[in-house]
Amino acid sequence: MKQSKWKPWLYLLPAFIFLGIFMVYPLIDVFVYSFEEGYNSASQTFFGTGPYNYRYVLRDPYFLQAVKNTFLIVVITVPVSTGLALLISVGLNSIKPLKELFQTIYFLPYVTNTLAVGLVFMILFQKTPYTDGFVNLIIKWFGGSSIDFIDGPYWAKMFVMCFYTIWVVMPFKVLILTSALASVNPVYYNAAKVDGTSKLRIFTRITLPMISPMLFYLIITGFIGAFKAYSDEVAIFGTDLNAAGMNTIVGYVYDMLYGDSGGYPSYAAAAAIILFAIVLTITCVNLLVSRKNTTYA
């Protein structure tokens, strides 16, 4: 049969059109904006071209704070949430009674609204003139002094932020990992048992390599998701993240566009491009590392 050359492209055309309009064009546009100094979206004018926007953004203490916050969130939440999810999934996989119940409980945060969860966290952690919050009650009960987690020291706020992020992203990871664990053929475990393999060695030499593709998928998407963090911060600390010192890179981009100090699309574009470069680099590193350590069987 003769295959026509243009037919497959015709089938792909709708996808190309949508991706082109809503992804490729904006991406190029943002890239162009980031080099146009003082661009005004209303009058569509700018003074000149050059790296000035990048120079400004990279010297802006708010941006540097946002980068620091974002990196801290990434470095803490991705390993902790993935590790905890692995632990919980292994636990879930090895119990029989009430397994479904626990699976449902662990999945609940995933279907719960971010803002609702944020509100609950506020109630748990916030210190008001009327109450110290639930967590502080516990701390005091153990003989500690109360801490303001929402308006207090930086480490306390970062703790709540990471706690919250881990809590929100873990259910999906637990879901993926439990199904990955369940899909490992039990015959491997039987073979290992006959050969007298210890539980720990079964886990490190058989289970982990077998689920490694899923694990790396979660780590890569986890990194990307954590770098794009913004709504979770708003849910806990409100919209003025710069004042709270808890802004993230995406939050900075938003503020530069629409925030109280906003109206600078060029700065926003430069910050967005910097974030893009960071995420791209880290994802590439991730893929390189995972290719060496993953087995697809």
């Binding site: 053929n185 015959v187 491997y188 039987n190 073979a191 048992k193 006959v194 050969d195 007298g196 393999t197 030499r205 058989i206 390599p209 077998m210 490694s212 087995t295 069987a297």
Partner: peptide, 20 residues
Amino acid sequence: LPPENRGVGMVFQSYALYPH
């Protein structure tokens, strides 16, 4: 006795070779 203390070698139907 558990399998590892019996001194048995087992060949499984699907071979159960560790793919990685």
